[in-house]
């Protein structure tokens, strides 16, 4: 009996050790990039032997990098503005109807999550080549919007599932029309999910690599495209600085989205 208990406590100690080790494996690579980005030398060492903001200055001093960052931010913002209403509208349509059409539509709208991005990239590249939309900012915005729709759909659907639709019917029976009922009664209560889905749309565009690799070029090159090309050729330490800034940005946005989805009743 006693021996059994000893063995089981040993097993649970082992399990804790393993669990913590896996968590470290998950987080460590991300947090090691940040101190390295302050390294003064070209060869990124850890811990850095001398600290310097050199690679950050390099980034802000380079018109190529800053331009790419600016292009990416604009594209992400436009994607967020387009994908959020499209996705929220679709989520509402799917949630309030149980027809076969809306279930089929759900599957179609989820497809961008399933199809490998390399296939999406060459497919759109081919279509854009016919209409001269390659290397245009609008072309990338539309492609990113398509990719972001499922993120918005999932997030706002889960918000709607926690909402009592009877409230909206009550509002309608009191004389407001459907749109007003949605805007005044439903939307304020699923606000958290809508904001979270907008944030996901923004980040999904900001981080997107493969599709931009094919569709953007020259002045329309996005930040991830430039980073990817730079990494393929040589390990440029400026990327450590950019990565650190992206890590901080996605952490902030991710935490904000988590708070948003938690808040819903």
């Amino acid at each position: 009996m006693r021996r059994g208990r000893e063995r089981s406590s040993l097993a649970s100690l082992l399990l804790s050790g393993l669990g913590i080790a896996v968590l470290i494996f998950l987080v460590m690579p991300i947090f090691i990039v940040v101190p390295m980005s302050f390294s003064a030398s070209r060869f990124l060492s850890f811990p850095p032997t001398a600290l310097s903001p050199r690679w950050y200055l390099e980034f802000f001093g380079s018109p190529e990098w800053t331009r790419a960052a600016w292009v990416s931010l604009q594209i992400a913002f436009a994607t967020c503005l387009l994908a959020t209403p499209i996705g929220v509208a679709a989520a509402y349509g799917i949630h309030t109807s149980s027809s076969r059409f809306s279930r089929a539509a759900y599957t179609v709208l989820m497809m961008p999550l399933m199809v490998p991005h390399i296939i999406v990239a060459i497919g759109i590249f081919f279509i854009y080549a016919r209409i001269g939309a390659n290397n245009t900012v609008v072309g990338i915005i539309l492609a990113h919007t398509m990719l972001a729709v499922p993120f918005v759909l999932i997030t706002s659907l889960s918000g709607l599932q926690g909402f009592d639709m009877a409230q909206e019917r009550a509002a309608q029976s009191l004389g407001v029309n459907r749109l007003e009922a949605f805007l005044k009664v439903t939307a304020p209560q699923i606000k958290g999910s809508i904001i979270a889905s907008a944030l996901f749309a923004f980040v999904s565009s900001l981080d997107e690599v493969v599709v931009s690799l094919f569709l953007s070029g020259g002045p329309s090159s996005t930040l991830p495209k430039r980073m990817f090309v730079a990494l393929r050729d040589e390990v440029d330490p400026t990327i450590a600085a950019i990565s650190s800034m992206l890590i901080i940005a996605s952490l902030a946005i991710g935490l904000a989205a988590m708070v948003g989805t938690r808040k819903r009743a």
Binding site: P29, I30, L44, L231, A240, S243, I247, S250, I253
Partner: peptide
Amino acid sequence: CILIPFWTSLLVRSYAWLI
């Protein structure tokens, strides 16, 4: 801790491993 890498850009994570 599980969500942090989930939110971080794929490219950044690949870069981290590159280093």
